[in-house]
């Protein structure tokens, strides 16, 4: 057993602090009583004043709700969207013409590998999604415009997502053309035919 004498605090007090030292002492800890820093106080006041006005604006129904703000932004985005060419849709012939443009087909292939291959296979041979290289079609008869429509709108029941809005218009055309180009390519491990047979002309 040893007894410990509680010592007087031996804190280092600066010259300009001597007048500010309080008579508080806890286990040797002393306290000064510096005034609240002005900049700190103003920071506090400013955040409070801002908050009052912010609440007045948004809590009283004066300002828009988050959903109203969203609706406005979405309208702006919609307005900017290029209008679908009314009646001026690409025809089957337009798609077929793309087949002779290697750079468009190449871009279509890139898009296909990036977006479609996960379900339809790298060579379109079919995985979860159907084989795209055979003569069997589930949605439509295999005409280019029908393929493009399926890509654009998707097939919710089967799990095919709609790509409209996710692919640029020319990408959509290119990938359609690419699918046309792999028809009859007989890739290895091809999935069994699904749908109805519509022989290519």
């Amino acid at each position: 057993m040893s007894e410990v004498q509680l010592k007087e605090p031996q804190n280092q007090i600066l010259k300009d602090e001597e007048a500010l030292l309080l008579d508080h002492e806890y286990d040797g800890i002393q306290e000064l009583d510096h005034p609240l820093p002005q900049w700190w106080l103003w920071l506090f006041y400013l955040t409070i004043i801002f908050s009052v006005f912010y609440c007045l604006y948004y809590l009283t129904g004066w300002g828009p709700t988050l959903r109203e703000e969203l609706a406005v932004t979405m309208q702006e985005i919609e307005a900017k969207k290029p209008k679908a060419p009314e009646g001026g849709e690409a025809t089957d012939e337009v798609y077929m013409a793309l087949l002779s443009q290697p750079d468009r087909i190449k871009n279509g292939q890139e898009v296909f590998i990036g977006k479609c291959a996960a379900c339809h296979g790298e060579q379109g041979q079919g995985l979860i999604g159907p084989n795209l290289t055979d003569d069997y079609w589930i949605h439509g008869t295999g005409r280019p415009t029908e393929i493009a429509k399926t890509i654009r709108e998707g097939v919710a029941v089967k799990g095919m997502p709609p790509w409209d809005g996710l692919l640029a218009d020319d990408e959509l055309m290119n990938v359609t053309a690419y699918i046309l180009s792999i028809r009859g390519s007989n890739p290895p491990n091809a999935k069994a035919p699904e749908g109805t047979e519509y022989p290519a002309n």
């Binding site: 286990d27 040797g28 800890i29 002393q30 000064l32 009583d33 510096h34």
Partner: peptide, 13 residues
């Protein structure tokens, strides 16, 4: 304050 041997800056704060 224990490790620094210094008084707390401001009681008011």
């Amino acid at each position: 304050p224990k490790a620094a041997n210094r008084p707390i800056y401001s009681y008011r704060l």
